[in-house]
């Protein structure tokens, strides 16, 4: 029997029982729902929704002449303030965003980098997560710890360490260029390149892929694999037909935890990137810490968030239809 059908059956049973209507129990369940969903809901409403609304409002305002925001009400003209300042609300920042193909290009480029990072992370993290989930219990915790431990040191320090590794005087550079030289290819520089940006991105986000994958793989029942083996499935078939489909929720959450933060990242391209490595994160940061254009920064961020949510929705839809197909 497939997973889906099984789930459907349990849900059906739950409904049946609700209909039977043990009032006390449903009341209790509702209380539980209230207690479980309530606190995060309240916390996030206060500390996320309200600030976000402020930011959305910001995107419809004028930037202040000296940074920050222009006033909503007409300014009191004093000796300090020159006349003719804008105030109130406007679509100006949105118009600016859509007036130039430039910003669409940066979006595309950033999504490409995020996708590449996610893919590389997945390829590197999967065997690791699989191995951890199949190790003995006391080893497992240690191995997870070893994945997370580097991240207790400072993020920037780790990036700077990569500067040393990829630098022109490093052993790695010498080795690669010696190989390339032997093949008759002109030497390359590793640091300050899109390659370095990708390495840095993967390095920073790898645990975000390993952890969800591991937590998912760990719960798989080894009996399923044994059963598949008994039925004569090859090693590859066992992975592809059993382990991989079951691990998809882990893959998706890992992908989300890598893909999305990469889009907002500006430090890695700043430090490891070359003269062309500008991503959407850099652009947004620049609006707040450079150009002092908060409305446009908010517009960029809103567009980014919308794009991410759209992609997430698409991915969820694909996942659902893929799972559905397999179930039928």
């Amino acid at each position: 029997m497939t997973k889906k059908a099984e789930q459907g059956r349990t849900e059906g049973r739950a409904e049946e029982r609700a209909e039977v209507g043990i009032k006390e129990r449903t009341a209790r369940q509702r209380m539980a729902k209230f207690f479980v969903a309530g606190p995060p809901l309240v916390f996030l409403t206060v500390f996320f929704v309200v600030p976000s609304l402020i930011m959305i409002a910001t995107s419809f305002r004028f930037p202040g002449e000296f940074g920050g925001l222009a006033p909503i009400a007409a300014p009191v003209v004093s000796a300090h303030v020159s006349q003719g300042l804008e105030y109130g609300f406007t679509l100006e920042a949105y118009q600016f965003f859509f007036s130039d193909i430039l910003y669409a290009k940066i979006f595309l480029k950033s999504f490409a980098v995020a996708a590449a990072t996610t893919l590389i992370c997945l390829v590197m993290a999967y065997p690791l997560a699989l191995l951890i989930s199949r190790s003995k219990k006391h080893l497992r915790n240690l191995m997870v710890l070893l994945v997370v431990l580097p991240f207790a040191s400072n993020f920037l320090i780790r990036i700077y360490a990569w500067m040393i590794i990829l630098g022109p005087e490093s052993g790695l550079s010498y080795f690669i260029n010696a190989v390339l030289g032997a093949l008759g290819i002109t030497p390359i520089t590793l640091l300050f390149s899109p390659f370095a940006v990708l390495v840095g991105m993967v390095y920073v986000h790898l645990p975000f892929m390993v952890l969800p994958l591991y937590t998912n793989l760990e719960k798989h029942d080894p009996a399923l694999l044994d059963a598949a083996q008994d039925l004569g499935a090859t090693r590859w078939q066992r992975f592809w037909r059993v382990t991989w489909p079951l691990s998809l929720p882990g893959v998706f959450s890992g992908a989300a935890l890598v893909f999305i933060p990469v889009l907002g990242m500006f430090a890695v391209p700043d430090i490891l990137g070359g003269t062309g490595d500008i991503l959407i994160g850099n652009l947004i940061k620049d609006q707040f810490l450079g150009t002092r254009d908060w409305p446009f920064g908010s517009v960029l961020a809103i567009m980014l968030t919308l794009a991410v949510l759209a992609i997430a929705g698409l991915a969820a839809w694909f996942a659902r239809s893929a799972v559905g197909q397999r179930a039928t």
């Binding site: 930037p63 430039l102 480029k109 062309g276 609006q287 150009t291 446009f296």
Partner: peptide, 14 residues
């Protein structure tokens, strides 16, 4: 500031 920022983005992307 806004038009310099656009110019700068263009420079970097070129």
């Amino acid at each position: 500031r806004r038009s310099l920022s656009r110019l700068w983005t263009e420079i970097k992307l070129r």
